Amino acid sequence: MGIADAIPGVSGGTIAFISGIYEELVGSIRRITPAALLLLFQQGPKAFWQHINGTFLVVLLSGVLISLASAARLAIYLLEQYPTLLWAFFFGLIVSSALWMAGKVNLWNLRLMLCLWFGSLFSYLVTVVSPVEIQISNWVVFLAGSVAICAMILPGISGSFILLLLGLYAPIMGAIKALDLQILLLFLAGCATGLLSFSHLLGWMFKHHHDLTLALLIGIMLGSLNKIWPWKYTTDYRINSHGDLVPLMQDNVLPSDYLALTGQEPYLWAALALMLLGGGAVYMLERYGSRSN
């Protein structure tokens, strides 16, 4: 989840879903309430820890943080040096995830199909929004954390991509690498606030409208494929706050047109192999998650 959350366009929530821990994650976060704190004072730390599923949350959060501080650097390097191949892997992973999730819906009907379409449209529109530049302040970092964490636990919507749209991806990733505690603590406080609020909504949706929620999440994942298509041609650039030239507008193109438009090797067969590898990773994660459950 940490590696996925570090890459704009890929959601850690997708990894949680296909590994079989998503609903447990949302349910565990929902239990962190004032009532849980009251339990801490009345019955002691052990009862509180068991109530919030503390071991599960600590182990998961430790993995995410360790990954962000270590393996995510490799993912960012690959994104800069071999974007086509990295996007191809995640493209296969998300397509396979969406198909796997569709099999979890009990019975498809018109209402579920409309929910799927709405989720796809919403996610697609998010991917075509142009990035903006926002002046960094304490409140901006806090609010960015609140919004990004909600995206991070939604399969298909990347918290990193939301940060990219807000113009805060580079500052936040830079703060992680440099261990800038002021920015990191503000960002984490925003994440905690957003996560505790949003988890209650997700938990209620799964409890009362399980199949509708699944259809919506599948749609969100499918709409995000517009962002993850491996072969892109940049049509416009912008200069960021550091004076660097970065892509502003990109069109998805066919592999056969990619070489002619960009002058770069499309790595077609390698990309197709990595798509299959991504799909295989979903199958392995699903089998491992089912066996663990």
Results as ranks from 00 to 15, higher is better:
3 I>A: 15
4 A>D: 05
4 A>H: 00
5 D>W: 00
5 D>Y: 05
7 I>P: 02
10 V>T: 00
12 G>R: 08
12 G>D: 09
14 T>K: 02
15 I>C: 05
16 A>G: 12
17 F>Y: 12
17 F>H: 08
17 F>V: 01
18 I>H: 02
19 S>H: 00
21 I>K: 01
21 I>W: 04
22 Y>N: 00
24 E>N: 13
25 L>V: 04
25 L>P: 08
27 G>L: 00
27 G>M: 04
29 I>Q: 10
30 R>P: 04
31 R>A: 08
31 R>E: 02
35 A>C: 03
35 A>K: 14
35 A>R: 14
38 L>W: 08
39 L>M: 12
40 L>G: 05
40 L>Q: 06
40 L>P: 10
41 F>R: 13
43 Q>V: 01
46 K>M: 12
46 K>T: 12
50 Q>A: 13
52 I>G: 00
53 N>A: 09
54 G>F: 15
56 F>T: 11
58 V>T: 13
58 V>N: 08
60 L>F: 15
62 S>L: 14
62 S>W: 09
63 G>K: 11
64 V>M: 15
68 L>N: 09
69 A>Y: 12
69 A>H: 10
69 A>G: 10
70 S>M: 08
71 A>V: 12
75 A>S: 06
75 A>L: 10
77 Y>K: 11
78 L>Q: 05
79 L>E: 11
81 Q>S: 13
82 Y>Q: 12
84 T>L: 10
85 L>F: 10
87 W>E: 07
87 W>F: 15
88 A>W: 06
89 F>I: 08
90 F>V: 03
92 G>P: 07
93 L>E: 01
97 S>Y: 03
98 A>P: 15
99 L>R: 13
99 L>Q: 04
100 W>V: 13
